[in-house]
Design a protein around this nucleic acid. Sequence first.
DNA 1: TCACATTTGTCCGTATGTATC
DNA 2: AGATACATACGGACAAATGTG
Lengths: 234, 234
Amino acid sequence: MIDQTELIFNPIKSRRTFEEVSNEIKRLIFQGILKPGDRLPSESELARRFSVGRQTIREGLRLLELSGFITVQKGSTGGSLIRDTILNRISGLFLDAIQMKNISVDELTLARVEIERVVLNHTIKNIEDLDLKNLQENILQAKKMVENHIPAFDQNIQFHKLLAKASKNPVFVIVVEAIMAVVAHFLSGYEKDVEGSRKVALLHQDIVNAIIEGNRDEAIRLLEEDLQQLKRVL
Amino acid sequence: MIDQTELIFNPIKSRRTFEEVSNEIKRLIFQGILKPGDRLPSESELARRFSVGRQTIREGLRLLELSGFITVQKGSTGGSLIRDTILNRISGLFLDAIQMKNISVDELTLARVEIERVVLNHTIKNIEDLDLKNLQENILQAKKMVENHIPAFDQNIQFHKLLAKASKNPVFVIVVEAIMAVVAHFLSGYEKDVEGSRKVALLHQDIVNAIIEGNRDEAIRLLEEDLQQLKRVL
DNA sequence: TCACATTTGTCCGTATGTATC
DNA sequence: AGATACATACGGACAAATGTG
């Protein structure tokens, strides 16, 4: 018979001190004691407060930085700043996984179509005026850039993130954010394709129009056309 | 007018040496020169080869470790081992994001239902005999455990990962893997619910049967019942 | 059982680069 | 331009863990 108390009490000291440093600071963030925008004490000060060496603090900060909880800046007013999102870090790891598994454009596009389709269904259901305004603003920016013969790469990727955000489900936001990081990576070799950017911006405009008109099937059809267009480019 | 050459050429040297160390080793992994199971040279040896200090090497290794590329062990036969997957790290970060955003069980379940539904469609289309064998084996294990009054949480979570794997799309695998990490986290307080495990195992059996019979609608209906069952527990 | 070598973990002192005032 | 505060980086040292003879 297993002594169940063994399952209840976790070891207090993890094997490595720098992990404790990271976890302790993470705890303060989760509890809201440290908020986005706050600055951590300097490395020396942290070392003094935790009673550990600076190297240990630094390795703990590396963990927090890679996890997206802080950014670190040099200089006299530098230091570790608490950030408000760890989404970009998830995207980075997602990208690593895709590269490691040699995932193809076809596989990515297939998954994108399926996932963004269901997200769009919820977006149509839950979209609010502010979301529409953001989408319109995004398209306007993209159009201005292509008029000046500058590709609107970032804007067109941002469009899909805005769509996900309008679904009002944070899980969708995270998933789409990760997928779009991979799309951006695949696209990074085609940054001079102004004509492609123009086509996509127009498609995005049509999608928003279809959403406004409540034409669900048309919106989804256009979205799929958008994604297939990308597949052809790559 | 923006000078477009600014957009094309990225800085070759990153600001910090330890990032270069991490990127260089990552490159060797991506290129297949370093393979899963291989051991990196010791920290001192790496420091010698890269002509940097050991502290710099260590911070680079922290990045690789947290990204899931290596595991590090102490001792005479210890060191840094190349791993074969970084999926669990993605799951960890995904979990961080969910905690930070205070995502609810409802929101998670909604996203799960939508995403696992489309994944199941592809699974039904692409499943092979080996996948079916793995699923049956998984259910058998779960049933054995509940017969011995042991909850089969890990098996029941693994079931969903196996379903995703059978879809033959690695993007789906990654997404479902991340989502299941969150499910496991939500479930961690209910580890003694043997009766729940039993119900779920039976549902899983029905799902596999429906897949074998090619009854797509029934399989999806059962999957949704499975997920809603979890929502009721929490 | 007992040394011994190897490797990571940790600390300290020092020096340099960098951003801000 | 100079002073200041901070991260970055190096080298040396010892402790702790882990396997071997």
